[in-house]
Structures are given as C-alpha cells and as structure tokens.
Amino acid sequence: MNHINHHPDEATLLSYAAGALPRSFAVLIDCHLEQCPQCHEKIFKAEAIAGEFIEHSPPIEANDSDALRDKFFAALDAEPTPQQLAHTVGNEPQLPIEVVAVLSGRDQELPWRFIVPGMHSITLNSSDLHSSESSLKLLRIAPGRNLPMHSHQGSELTMVLQGAFQDELGCFRPGDVADLDHEVEHQPITIGNEACICLVAMDAPLEFKSLVPKLLQPFIGF
C-alpha cells in the first residue's frame, strides 16, 4: 500500500461522519477510506462525538410511545435471532464500477468523453450521483499537461486514482485527496509518464479561467 500524503480536511471527515456530505463527496471519501486507516480513525472519533450527542440528548416521548413499542416488539418477535442472521449482514460501501475499473487497470474500457486535447472525462451517473447540487466525475489528463486554471464556486474534492499531479500544495499520488474550496486557486500539472486519472466531486460547477470560455462550460459539462 502506498503512503498517503494528502488527506481530506478534518471538517470534511466530520461531515462525512455526520451524514451531512453531499452524496458524491461521500462516495469519494469511501474511496479514500479504502486506503487510509488514519482518516478512518478520525471518522470513528467524529462518530463517537455523535454517539455522545445521542446518549445525552433529552429523551422525547412520542404521543403513542406504548403503541409504537408494542408494534416494534411484534416486529422483533418475527425476526430470527442475531446468531441466525450473523452472516447475512454486510455493510461495506460499494465503490462506483468506473472507479473499480480504473483501480484494476481497466480504464481503457471506459467511455471517456473528449473535452479538450489531453483531457477526457466521465460523469458518473449511476444511481443518484449526479444531481443539480453535486456531481462526481472521472478526469483523465495526459502526461505533461496542465489542468486549466480554475476557481471553485463551492466545495471540491479531488482524489488521484492513477498517475500523479502537482500544484502549489505539493505532489498528489494515488490515494491522495485535494480538499479545496473557492478561496483557493490552483493550477495542477500532471507529472510522470502515465495519464493522471482523478475522481472529482463538486457541488458547484468549475469555473475555468483560461482555455475554456465560460459560455462553453455547460456544453462540456463543467
């Protein structure tokens, strides 16, 4: 397992634990967690804080608490025991098939869409990943290419799946996450001999400052 140098912001991990991240961001964090025990630990801590909230919340009784309790007990009575169920429950997050394809070196099989020379993308549409509020994309940038400089309207998370890029913040390799917001302007450049493939989650469209005129943005999907 490679060493990870760039992690999501702790604020992002807390929101993940709270169930408050937009779906596309949460999926990207799932991908990072597969490789990062360190962030897992932090998420456990953020969940433990929530556990304290639950435990010390003021108890609220429902108007029909007794009826609800009876209903629940009846449902419980119909359930098999936990032992009988032990092997049927799993809770592993499912990574998007496109991400799995990249991670297992089958990225050529994916339906890449041309954006500008040296840059292709795929919008992950599976289930509910793409909405007006947030989206998840794969971005493939050829070796030695600049990513167009852009600023962010909202939050953005980028995780490297293959290859590497560099920007003002350092070098990002597989597993690394760049956690940026609209106050940061950056100009990443790919490094190494292979194409750099990133998973990008955002909750507002990217605004390219060069290369792609603003009017074309809706057309290319960014």
Partner: peptide, 27 residues
C-alpha cells in the same frame, strides 16, 4: 424503528472495543 430492527439484526457485528453502543446505534 428501522434503526432498532437493524441493530437487532446486526447485533453480532457490535464490537465494544471499536465503538460504544450509542455510537454504533448512531451509525
């Protein structure tokens, strides 16, 4: 109600070394 049903079904996966009961229920 659904959370408690799931808690029952998953009771075997609860590990007090990893999380407290309240945290586990929260997740």
């Amino acid at each position: 109600q659904e959370a408690f049903l799931q808690a029952w079904r998953r009771a075997k996966t609860f590990d007090p070394k990893k999380a407290k009961a309240s945290t586990w229920l929260f997740t």
